[in-house]
């Protein structure tokens, strides 16, 4: 039987400034409960209400993006691995809070997502506001707000959105990092 070295895992999380982490299937209940825990944590850390709500808002968009994407694979015969691949992390980096998420993507979904992110990375605050105004009028899709969430995260962030792509067998593990 495999054993887990929880002492080392906890120590590693702490050294990396990771305050809270959730990994596993993202149900709406989990999004609510973990979000509630994040808010309590930040309230106890005496964070201003504005900063707390920014962290919470970015967390909700990330968790719902991950959850909505993973749910697409529920009825797929080989979807189990992708469905359980989600992770969300709240971390502290000096004066900033960092909200990160990750999940497996099918290779065909990488291009459209990174194109959106690359566009957002080139825009300043005014450019992001203009794009937000344009996307606000586009209808909801079956899977969410059609990229409006990414724009809202970019508007709250203090640095351009960062992402990574790592090949994992026939999938790609995508991570997104937002600094508040």
């Amino acid at each position: 039987m495999k054993d887990f070295d929880l002492v080392r895992l906890r120590d590693d999380l702490s050294k990396r400034g990771i305050l809270m982490v959730f990994s596993g299937p993202f149900s709406h209940c989990i999004v609510e409960e973990f979000g509630n825990a994040v808010r309590h944590y930040l309230e106890n850390a005496r964070l201003s209400r504005a900063a707390m709500m920014d962290v919470f808002a970015v967390y909700v968009e990330q968790a719902q993006n991950v959850g909505n994407y993973l749910r697409r694979w529920e009825s797929e015969p080989h979807g189990a691995r992708i469905i359980n691949s989600g992770i969300v992390i709240i971390a502290r980096d000096d004066e900033h809070y960092v909200i990160s998420s990750g999940n497996l993507l099918a290779p065909q979904d990488v291009g459209p997502l990174t194109a959106q992110l690359e566009q957002l990375r080139t825009l300043d605050k005014m450019g992001l506001k203009a794009l937000h105004k344009e996307k606000l009028r586009q209808p909801l899709t079956e899977w969410g707000s059609g990229g409006l969430g990414l724009i809202q995260m970019a508007r709250k962030a203090t640095a351009p959105l960062q992402y990574t792509l790592t090949a994992v067998d026939e999938w790609v593990f995508f991570t997104l990092r937002v600094v508040i």
Binding site: A57, V60, E61, L136, P139, Q152
Partner: peptide
């Protein structure tokens, strides 16, 4: 107090 991105579209 808070609107996520989908709710922002619905509110509009």
């Amino acid at each position: 107090l808070y609107l996520n991105s989908s709710s922002t579209k619905v509110m509009l």
